[in-house]
Design a protein around this nucleic acid. Structure first.
Lengths: 145, 145
DNA sequence: TATTGTTATACTCTATAACTATA
DNA sequence: TATAGTTATAGAGTATAACAATA
């Protein structure tokens, strides 16, 4: 293992710099995968949120941490592109629920699969033990928030 | 250590999910710190790039991976806010170099300091050994790209 | 009256294409 | 002609404030 590490000669970053750079790397990768399928990051997040929910506009605004007016615009554009449908709620005629279309569901599945493959490629230099340790430590940090 | 882990009861994520979620966490934190000081992520990146450089518009466009016209707009807005100055190059009268103002330098230093403190707080649950290991594994992934 | 969602408006960020000034 | 940068234009994404419809 020491031999493997010395082959690569990576700089040893501080915890802050390492996490910041890793974050930009992963975020940029996801942005690129989304762009390849002609969706922005916020549209991708939208599709992800709608995978297992059919929220009202208000709930969606809360989930995405957007103003309700921003959500209206986002859903307008997504609807125009055939990614979602608005459905008038039966129990409260003021509310609209938002539903993923089947083509959008296929799209999010493809993007996810390609992103997974890319992250696995990025961590391919690590041993299985190291990958598990990285996953464990990252999970630990996430769980603390 | 096993006792500590069981106290927290965090979900054990896959490497892909853990890195994706960690990425969003760090990215969101940085966005919030920037917003608190009234700069967007791209403006923050701009200030970071200009900390130790005085590039031409063209070099800046390449560094930020923006079109030259997008860079013009970005620098227009930054200049209006007193974050940067354009300086006509002496050796090529077509070129402009972009320089950070002292107030912007103070701003980027403050944002960096607050972000560092926040990431350190986020990793405070880890032992020193675990933090070092996380930094080492993250560095390893970054270096591989 | 209160809540849900849209509209009007304004600003940031981004790109493409056409343009000006300089090399 | 080629290059550096700006301008004109268009569109996505965001927020605040005012509004309409429903509760």
């Amino acid at each position: 293992m020491a031999a493997e590490a010395s082959l690569q000669q990576e700089a040893e970053l501080t915890i802050v710099d390492a996490l910041a750079q890793l974050s930009f790397l992963i975020h940029g990768t996801l942005t690129q995968h989304a762009a390849k399928h002609e969706v922005s990051m916020i549209q991708l997040r939208l599709l992800g949120v709608l995978r297992d929910r059919e929220p009202t506009m208000q709930e969606l605004a809360r989930l995405l941490r957007l103003d309700k007016s921003s959500t209206t615009g986002l859903i307008d554009r997504a609807e125009t592109r055939g990614l979602v449908r608005r459905i008038r709620s039966e129990r409260d005629r003021r509310s609209m629920t938002v539903r993923l279309t089947s083509s959008a569901r296929r799209k999010i599945n493809v993007v996810e699969r390609e992103f997974r493959a890319d992250v696995e490629r990025m961590t391919a230099d690590l041993t299985p033990r190291q990958r598990a340790e990285l996953a464990r430590l990252a999970s630990r940090v996430i769980a603390g928030q």
